[in-house]
Amino acid sequence: MEHSHTARVSIGAKPRSRWSLTRKLVPYAYLSPTILLLIVLSLIPIATVFVYSLLDNVIITRNPPSFIGLGNYVEIFFDNHFRQALTNTLVFSGVSVLAHLLLGLSFALLLNSKLIGAVPKALFRVIYILPWVFTASIIAILWRLLLNPNGVVNFLLITLGLANDQIEWLSSRQLALPAVTFINIWSGYPFYMVSFLAGLQGISDDLYEAGKIDGANSGQLFRYITLPQLKPIIISLAMLDFIWTTHQFTLIWMTTGGGPTRTTEMLSTFTYKLAFSSNEFAQASATAMIILAISMFVAVFYVRNQRLAND
């Protein structure tokens, strides 16, 4: 009897432990494609770039790489061109994010208004969202044509008597940065608009009705109901947009190339020129790591905000 009992245990124990191990591994098996992709597409490249940033003589050089620690970071930090690129990037990104917020919210409020009929609303939705449909290269080509000294914008300004001479929008050291910032604002606001519109449609009418019963005017309704309800969306969008805008390369490269005389130089174009024009891949890696650090700094706030929103 005892023997048979032992036998039953020994027969049953082995499959159970194997099953238990399999059960533990199943979630990892499901995750493995994602983990593999993350390692191959993110971790290995980031680690490689980080290692390059600590070396001298990488990629285009006959000399073997040598470890110089933070030498590249120090050199980059004291480079006037880098500081100019950093300042330009912060101005370009800050103004873009702010304008995106204001424009996106304004258009979303307009489209959410009950004063506009269904057909015009649908029409305006299509018109307002158009800039978002174009890729960055198309936007760059389009605006290069529009802002050409012989282009449509100058033609209209001169015809309307708002300008006497042709304005060199993208060639002027005073106007180039505002011009590319404007183009970026134009191309980016629809994403905010769509997101805010979804947020506005999710706010319960009960809140507004309660506010009206309490005697709130439209300004107070906006300030005390609409804005607080949209706050999580505003913070999330602003942070994501700031990260995306600091990475903007195609638009700048295809409109001004960072010129004239570095007045529109961004961290992205600065890094590209270091790598592919000067063949300074180690310094370019250091700049790339600095951009990553800035993005990570903002990303941490984004994740924290998301966690607080979920709690």
């Binding site: 290069r144 050409n148 000294p149 012989n150 042709q166 060199e168 993208l170 060639s171 002027s172 050291r173 180039a176 409109t255 001004t256 190339g257 010129g259 004239p260 005389t261």
Partner: peptide
Amino acid sequence: IAPGAFSLREQDKVEEFTNGR
């Protein structure tokens, strides 16, 4: 010299000449 020199590229140059400007 044609306006906008500081942002013109080689293809813009050819375009301006081709259009008779």
